[in-house]
Design a protein around this nucleic acid. Structure first.
Length: 548
DNA sequence: ACTTCCGAGCTT
DNA sequence: CCTAAAGCTCGGAAGT
């Protein structure tokens, strides 16, 4: 059973067959039907509609997100970045100019600028429009190279959108008191906004003293570069790794200042006030926010939480955090994509790079020397690195694992020609810009043109791996969400890592759910015959900091 | 006072 | 730092 749902013209929600409902009616309707029939809910946008249900405490099992589907179909058609929400999809279907996507989310101050105005022409039935778009999308999917894989992708992305909305409501357990204590220890007592904490103020003074007493603002890179210039030291920038090469008494002070100032400005008391409430950090998560299909976040820098603050992520009393990350995910994805038998065999090991080192350097060097080199070789293959000894290491890797290396090199050459590449489940890389085409279009061997072509080749080389890894983790989220025993729930997802918050007695079941989800996701994503092993060892802890 | 850009650094 | 790329956020600085 399938039920189509879209934003209504009057601020409510239109359900096919039930007309426009108020939010409370909508929530009750969904709760009832979810209990009796558990349909697949087809939503114009999960990010806009599901938070409405979550506010009423209603959760759903299965859905299809028309906006995410439209975005993936547009990318597959070489039209990445065009508006993808229902009004735009409907307009394109009728040969009309598609309106831009509206920026706000349904759960953000709708009264202020009515974010739930559907954007469809007045008189158009939103549910009917959604049904038309759904049918058209199904026709477009049928014409793709691998419709079955794409259907899996949109199912997984839709389930991921449910996870993202639920994580936004549930929040990541965050101990403000632990955070505050940490800040006070490192920076000194809290100061009013705009005023440097004691530790920073002291360091700023000592830095100025180290430069002969002339005031130097350590927050200004330009000022730092000029200050070194006055000392007869020429530095290209004020970056920490540049400063580390300079022998000057101000350097250690600057580095310490910058580390602490970074913590203060990015994750200090102001951050705590703005983002942590009731023991939870609630960022908003953007499924497919990155072209490769990775998630992005907005608000609070949820994907940039510094490792030093992981101690603040603590389970509630009587609860645990179950943390798991997919170790060395990308080389394993490459093994699965390329069908490289020997790389797949190496994936049997938890430490893939040690096995690579053995294959590459057996007899010539031991694993402590070989492993970092094997890692550079593999990362160079996936990222297009050429610095240092990367090129020669890559050549050796190519001799041992020709299928894997030729897979990414094929993607790189396609990118250099301006072609688009695709992930396992059918995410398609964007077409290069008109400026890129103009630059690389000539037949001359212009240096800039060669550089631009190589740069884009590096992007497509990485895209096939990173986007396929995103395929895998998307499917993983979908399978894991289904298997988690209530009330355990996902609270964090960062590219290849998940955190589940669970009552203590359920933690073993959560570990089991994760252990079962991984091979299921691998089988669904890469096929039942895929021999690649994806280790993902769950760990039950009280604080995130103890997970690694 | 506001916008826009840049440098920097954090995560994967 | 090391091997690459993308995205988020901040503060400074320059432009309007």
């Amino acid at each position: 059973m399938q039920v189509v749902v879209a934003q209504g013209h009057g601020g409510g929600v239109v359900v096919a067959g039930a007309g426009e409902l108020s939010e409370a009616q909508f929530a009750r309707y969904v709760a009832d039907l979810e209990r009796s029939r558990a349909p697949r809910w087809v939503m114009s946008s999960v990010a806009r509609l599901y938070p409405v249900l979550l506010r009423f405490g209603v959760r759903i099992g299965r859905c299809l997100d028309l906006s995410l589907t439209e975005g993936l179909l547009l990318a597959a058609a070489g039209k990445a970045g065009e508006p993808k929400e229902l009004p735009a999809a409907w307009a394109r279907l009728h040969g009309l100019e598609p309106p831009p996507d509206s920026p706000a989310h349904a759960d953000q101050q709708p009264a202020l600028f009515d974010a739930r105005e559907p954007g469809l022409p007045p008189g158009t039935d939103p549910a009917r429009a959604a049904e038309d778009v759904l049918a058209a999308q199904e026709r477009r999917i049928t014409r793709l190279d691998h419709p079955d894989r794409f259907r899996l992708l949109i199912a997984a992305e839709s389930a991921s959108a449910l996870v993202a909305a639920e994580m936004g409501v549930d929040g990541l357990p965050w101990r403000a008191d632990v955070h505050d204590r940490l800040l006070t220890e490192l920076l000194g007592p809290r100061t009013p906004a705009g005023q440097r904490p004691k530790k920073l103020a002291e360091l700023a003074t000592r830095i100025s003293d180290a430069f002969g007493g002339k005031p130097v603002n350590p927050d200004s890179p330009q000022t730092i570069v000029r200050a070194f210039g006055r000392e007869g030291i020429s530095v290209p920038s004020a970056r920490a790794h540049v400063l580390r090469t300079v022998d000057h008494p101000a350097v250690p002070l600057l580095i310490e200042y910058r580390e602490l100032a970074r913590l203060h400005s990015a994750n200090g008391w102001a951050w705590l006030d703005e983002w942590v409430d009731g023991g939870r950090f609630r960022p908003s998560w953007v499924v497919g926010g990155v072209v490769s299909g990775r998630w992005a976040s907005s608000g609070g820098g949820a994907l940039q939480i510094p490792k030093t603050l992981r101690v603040c992520v603590r389970a509630d009393p009587g609860w645990k955090l179950v943390v798991a990350d997919a170790a060395q995910l990308e080389p394993r994805v490459l093994a699965a994509l390329s069908g490289d038998r020997r790389l797949a065999e190496a994936s049997a090991s938890t430490d893939l790079y040690a096995r690579l080192a053995d294959a590459m350097f057996a007899g010539t060097m031991d694993v402590t020397e070989g492993r970092p080199r094997a890692k550079i070789a593999m990362l160079s293959a996936m990222y297009g690195g050429t610095a240092g000894e990367a090129a020669s290491l890559l050549a050796l890797l190519r001799r041992r694992f020709p299928d894997a290396v030729s897979y990414v090199e094929h993607a790189a050459r396609a990118g250099e020609r301006g072609e688009r590449v695709r992930s396992r489940l059918g995410r398609v890389s964007p077409a290069p810009s008109a400026a890129w085409r103009a630059l690389t279009g000539g037949s001359d061997d212009d240096v800039r043109a060669r550089q631009a072509a190589r740069d884009w080749g590096r992007f497509t080389r990485n895209f096939v791996v990173q986007a396929s890894a995103a395929d895998f983790t998307s499917v993983l989220l979908a399978t894991l969400r289904r298997r988690l025993p209530a009330p355990a729930h996902l609270v964090f997802f960062q590219h290849d890592e998940v955190i589940v918050h669970a009552p203590e007695q359920l933690a073993p079941d959560v570990e089991t759910a994760i252990a079962a989800s991984v091979p299921e996701a691998a089988r669904l994503t890469f096929g039942p015959a895929c021999p690649v092993h994806f280790p993902m060892q769950p760990v039950t802890v009280d604080t995130y900091a103890d997970a690694k």
